[in-house]
Amino acid sequence: MSLYRDDGVVLRTQKLGEADRIVTVLTRNYGRVRAVGKGVRRTSSKFGARLEPFSHVDVQFYTGRSLDIVTQVESLDAYGGSIAGDYGRYTAGTAMLETAERLTDVEKEPAVQQYLLLVGGLRALAAGDHAAGAVLDAYLLRSLAVAGYAASFGDCTRCGAPGPHRWFSVESGGSVCRDDRPPGSATINEESLRVLSALLTGDWEIVDGADPRFLRESTGVVAAYAQWHLERGLRSLRLVDRA
């Protein structure tokens, strides 16, 4: 496999040497790939803006000894422009990229669902039809669900008693009933639970029409849930601008 080609989203770039960058790309078929973009920091680079974070690209790699090398790139969608032009979208989008990177920690292990979810999330973020913070919250809940950490906002996660319940336990994986709530469980408003369910299922009518109080409470629950299951905290989450 000296040359291979795939669609992907650029997650992160790091400077390398004089004019190169290490580019982390979440690809459709090969999962997360780290590769060197040679000379991309030069203004004369033929890759130019195509290898910036948030770029959805058709990319060809050459298999290298330690890191692969980017040989050709074509843009499929350049979400970066509209995302970087709005600070709230930029910070929310960065948290999405970091989450995608963390949930695909094994290189070249296919993660098609994570890839499709990220592309959909970035498309929604760039379109600006919904609040950037809500798009991020929906993405976090769904990407964690794809990774095997689906939160329950209905029945008790411990005994299965039908919900809704007033208590939420991050370590138990969602709503808990009065009898089974572990110490430290948070109390949560029923309306916030409805918002959280809507975020998970993509019922945007409920999310867009929700009272800001309940959206704020939902955001707190999502952040705590994501930080708990990702073990190491997301660095970009504290910098998300929800103004």
């Binding site: 203004t43 004369s44 033929k46 890759f47 130019g48 803006a49 195509r50 843009s75 350049a78 970066g80 422009g81």
Partner: peptide
Amino acid sequence: LPVGGDLEYADEIT
């Protein structure tokens, strides 16, 4: 566009 470059090599965003 950078001065001294060829138009055909410019990426779509630039």
